[in-house]
Design a protein around this nucleic acid. Sequence first.
DNA 1: TCACATTTAATTGTTCGCAATTGAATGTGC
DNA 2: GCACATTCAATTGCGAACAATTAAATGTGA
Lengths: 153, 153
Amino acid sequence: MPRKQSAADAPLRLDNQICFAVYSAAHAFNRVYKPLLDRLGLTYPQYLVMLVLWERDDVPVKTIGEKLFLDSGTLTPLLKRLEAAHLVKRTRSSEDERQVLIALTPQGHALKDKARAVPQSILAASDCSVSELVAMKDEIVALRDRLNAVIGE
Amino acid sequence: MPRKQSAADAPLRLDNQICFAVYSAAHAFNRVYKPLLDRLGLTYPQYLVMLVLWERDDVPVKTIGEKLFLDSGTLTPLLKRLEAAHLVKRTRSSEDERQVLIALTPQGHALKDKARAVPQSILAASDCSVSELVAMKDEIVALRDRLNAVIGE
DNA sequence: TCACATTTAATTGTTCGCAATTGAATGTGC
DNA sequence: GCACATTCAATTGCGAACAATTAAATGTGA
């Protein structure tokens, strides 16, 4: 005979939900990143876009979206703000007029050097060895990919 | 002499960032939850608030915020939407007029039964044993708590 | 008691995140 | 060559998320 808070409720308990763990960890990361990224004049999603562009430049919006799992509804205004900050340039492709290519400006390239300090600070804040973090990251990525596989039916 | 994409850039590479793993996993979870929660008429953050309330009712906004790491700027409008959906009632405390107490309505209580199907579906989607998920969850929570400790200086 | 700090929600403004729609460009089948 | 579907970015609308501010209630010290 179950009382309130019985074992049957365990799956609904907040502390038992991996999803909430991930959700709240993402916010915690965001709060740690905030003061670091303020110095670069970037928000966290903007920083992610810059990470993509620092790896490869002159790519359509679609490509950025595939890497970050974001769509044009998110990226279009974000990229316009990066353009207003003179970090990227948006130009419609001449080969395929449907595409908008995103290229770094000299300032956008230059920001990469300043950004190198960020991962170090995050590593320090996580108070964890690199190998532990890599192992966790690989597990989380594997989980994410299984979840994304379910979405595509 | 480093070329482009040298080893010095490794920390800035998107795929090496645990933070992006967490960020993208959170979004993947959200997308899996979406169709399940649509049946309950809830968004994911609203679902989290309901989880808190199903554990304990009649609590001030502050308490909910502490459990979910959210502030009143997020919760006040969210709770107003839950009230508009007749799932909670907001009443100012008579003992301390600064506080607004959040109580479940009968419909709010009743929704708990429908919600029991959700964690099962998520478990299936994650395609992972319970023990593996619990282990990951504990690691992620530990990381989150270390990050949050840094924020409080 | 009365000035003062603290606590608590609410509000405002900016930025994400996504669903749904629009509209232009491109590709395809017949 | 032409109707048709597909692709891609942009737009609109809604719901978070948070910083900063406001305002009311409460607690505290002299």
